[in-house]
C-alpha cells in the first residue's frame, strides 16, 4: 500500500511538473518570444522516461504525457498518442542497444527525438487526416529541437533530482542496481 501511495505521489508530482512546463511553453514563451518556435518540452519527459523508468511505467508515461500535451498543443489526441508512441518505441529500441546515463547524451537524444516527432506527425497526417499537412515546417522544428535540447540538459538534472528527493528507484539497467 505504501509502495502504491509513493508511486502515485511520485507520478502526480511529475505530471504537475509537466503541466508547469507545458504552460511555460504555451504562455510564457508567447509573452517573451512571440512567434519564434517554442521548445517541445514534453519530449524531454519521453526521453527521460524511456531511460529511467520500467517498461510498464514507460507505457503509462507515454499515455499520460500525451493526455497532458494534447491540451496545450491543440493536436488531436489520437495523432499525438501515435507520434509519441513511435518516438517512445524508437527510444526503447535505442536503449536496448546502447547504455546511456549521461544527461548530455540524453540531450542529444532529445534533439533526435524532437526531429523524429514532426516526421512521424507528417506521415501520420498524410495517412489519417482529411486535410493533411501541406508544408513541412522544417526550420521551425529544427529551431524548436535545438532549443529543447539545450533546455533538456538542465531539465534532466532536475528530473534526476526529483527522483532522488522522492526516493524513486531506477530500473537496474540504468543505475546498475535499484536505488
Amino acid at each position: 500500500m505504501k509502495k502504491l501511495t509513493l508511486f502515485m505521489g511520485h507520478t502526480l508530482l511529475f505530471y504537475f511538473v509537466l503541466l508547469l512546463l507545458m504552460s511555460f511553453q504555451s504562455s510564457i514563451w508567447l509573452q517573451f518570444f512571440s512567434q519564434s518556435p517554442a521548445p517541445s518540452l514534453w519530449i524531454t519527459f519521453l526521453v527521460y522516461g524511456a531511460f529511467y523508468r520500467s517498461l510498464g511505467e514507460t507505457i503509462l508515461l507515454t499515455y499520460l504525457t500525451s493526455f497532458v500535451a494534447s491540451v496545450f498543443l491543440n493536436m488531436p489526441l489520437g495523432l499525438l498518442l501515435l507520434c509519441n508512441s513511435l518516438c517512445m518505441l524508437s527510444l526503447l529500441t535505442f536503449k536496448s542497444r546502447f547504455m546511456v546515463t549521461n544527461p548530455s547524451f540524453l540531450a542529444l537524444l532529445t534533439l533526435l527525438t524532437n526531429l523524429l516527432f514532426p516526421l512521424a506527425h507528417y506521415l501520420a497526417s498524410q495517412f489519417f487526416e482529411t486535410n493533411p499537412i501541406h508544408r513541412f515546417e522544417f526550420f521551425s522544428w529544427l529551431i524548436s529541437s535545438l532549443i529543447t535540447a539545450l533546455i533538456s540538459v538542465a531539465l534532466f538534472q532536475f528530473y534526476m533530482w526529483l527522483d532522488k528527493v522522492t526516493a524513486k528507484a531506477w530500473p537496474t539497467e540504468v543505475g546498475g542496481s535499484a536505488q
Partner: peptide
Amino acid sequence: KVIASGTLPDHSALV
C-alpha cells in the same frame, strides 16, 4: 485578451 497559444506549427490555436 490572448493569454496563450499552441506551439506546434501544424496546429493553430489561441487561448
